[in-house]
Design a binder for these strands. Structure first.
Lengths: 342, 342
DNA sequence: TTGAAAGCGCTAACAG
DNA sequence: CTGTTAGCGCTTTCAA
């Protein structure tokens, strides 16, 4: 139940103005459907009585929230630390704004995606980097709200806005190999909260396939690569680098730029020079210009991904049929952190 | 009215299970208030019939949205381009997450703050850099939801989380003057959408007071300072710099780092060297490491501001009395972009 | 152009 | 422990 002093409601205005609730409702929403006299009178009374329609009741009645939800892959604290994610949000938000919508940022509530999805009062859900686990995809189904993924899985009939990750990671590793590196360490990503994170259809699975392809093509033994499990955070990159420094790897291949920056930070703290002592390649294309050098990375259009995801969502919400989300493009960007192995 | 196929409702479960709606409700919300048998039976049926309580109806009935709103000072596109703002959001979001709340980012809808506030289905509103104009403060009043400001006005009985802006801008300019600069250009900020943006109690007003004080203290003529109107965007900084280059100013003092970076960008494009040809000082303390140099700036705790604002908000929502928001501290940070005038 | 009244789906006071 | 029932505030159909 409500607490606090009672708000003025539509009924109060109806009574005070002598008109019906219908009229009051129209006065606010379809001014053309009542006479000008009635409208003026009603609005005047409303003004006098400090009345304003309650958006919550309105949304409930309408069955619309005028809000899109963005399901974060991690807690807010680390999510917003990642410029790649922020760019995605910026893209999403811009489209929302154009449609008169708001954007709700939804962290795993009580550490549970399930809980978060259950409680989200939104018209549609955009996820990033998730795989649909049994529980959650069923839940989304129950909620009967549309779902658009970013960096999601490519199978299972979900809509996901992706680059060609397999090809991209292939290109990423190819550049490393062509620079003469043979001792390579990879920092991986794990889909949050979902054991299936490494399944073939997931982001990590596709990336690994690309690496495998590159290995085959260039005669590298995949098992010679040092794989370090990580997540998309700065500190995860630092931690991985510390581990990698114990090996004889000459190049670190990160699945995310924020990891790459973390790795560089750890390397430099340990007195290593990048790229002289060890090269680093990232993935995403964020521009931090860490310690004055530019990162070699796979550049992907984060803002565009968000934009497209939101546009796709509104297509669905507006009843336009959507076959599948368009694929976006990437490119390799040569920076200072990857150099020919000497 | 709703569209699409009818959702399963609590009534369906009540009927199918043979229990009442109350029982069903309790089964989901206060499991302890019904017998275990009933609970199991109900949940089982619910599962079978794909039932899940509708959060919108629930929130409406409860009069709670479990969501905080953050009113953006500008459109999303430029807002999220500003790392200072992102840090604030990160602070806000972290606290929300801890409380099981979501965070809704609210751009001025249809370019109108009023409209945005009117439609926001949130339990509380955090604003940033706004002054309360007549319309909006009345509206917030009508909505009867608590409001906490960041970088807001210090008078008028509103709660605002601020640094001592007057002192900070004094220190900012003092450092410039002590470095020997006498020809100074200031890029100002204007409170969005509100004519009263430069009123004394607003952020800009307080900052200007600080500048005035510094001028008096060091025998500068305030009217010798070139004031350029701007807003907190990169491009605004670029534009201002172009104007300033036509003057004989030896130092640019920006009210926001993002402007400072924009200014540096424009200066370098025009062949000027920073700080050799012209110095630049920012305000906020964001770390972009633009073109390999660090910005001289006033460092203020963005994340902390967001955190405190959110904590204050929950204090209010939870009925703890709040006198006023605590003040946070700042410091001057010497970087590469401000140098002794030769 | 207008209004009565039936929802929307859930919560919770109250009575048993 | 359980059920009846009256809201919550707004929208909208339908008939006047």
């Amino acid at each position: 139940m409500q607490f606090g002093k009672k708000r003025t409601t539509i009924a109060d205005i109806a009574k005070a103005s002598g008109y019906s609730k219908t009229a009051v409702s129209f006065a606010f929403n379809c001014p053309s459907r009542i006479s000008e006299g009635a409208r003026n009178r009603i609005l005047e009374i409303a003004m006098k009585l400090d009345y304003i329609p309650d958006p919550s009741a309105r949304n409930f009645s309408l069955g619309k929230q005028l809000t899109l939800g963005f399901l974060l892959p991690q807690g807010i604290e680390t999510s917003l630390e990642n410029p790649y994610l922020v760019e995605v949000i910026r893209g999403l938000g811009t489209v929302c704004q154009d449609h008169g919508y708001m954007l709700t940022v939804i962290p795993p509530l009580n550490d549970s995606i399930y809980e978060a999805v259950k409680n989200a009062t939104v018209d549609g859900l955009v996820t990033m980097g998730y795989l649909m686990s049994d529980g959650v995809d069923r839940l989304v189904d129950l909620r009967a709200i549309p779902l658009v993924m970013i960096d999601g899985e490519e199978s299972g009939g979900f809509l996901s806005v992706n680059i060609d990750d397999e090809e991209a990671s292939y290109v990423q590793l190819e550049n490393v190999i062509k620079a003469g590196h043979r001792k390579i360490a990879v920092i991986t990503l794990s889909a949050p909260d979902l054991a299936a994170g490494d399944s073939d259809s997931g982001l990590v699975g596709r990336r690994l396939k690309g690496y495998r392809k590159a290995c085959q093509k260039y005669g590298l033994n995949e098992s010679d690569i040092l794989f370090c499990k990580g997540e998309a955070t700065f500190s995860s990159g630092q931690k991985a680098a510390q581990e990698i420094m114990l090996s004889d790897a000459t190049c670190i291949v990160a699945m995310s730029d924020i990891q790459a920056y973390g790795a560089i930070n750890a390397l430099e703290k340990a007195g290593k020079k990048v790229p002289e002592d060890i090269s680093v390649v990232g993935f995403d294309g964020i521009q931090l210009n860490y310690s004055g050098m530019t990162l070699s990375t796979i550049d992907q259009p984060a803002y565009e991904k968000g934009r497209i995801a939101a546009i796709t969502m509104f297509d669905i919400l507006d009843g336009r049929s959507v076959e599948k989300a368009p694929r976006v493009s990437f490119s390799f960007r040569q920076g200072d952190t990857l150099t020919q192995r000497r």
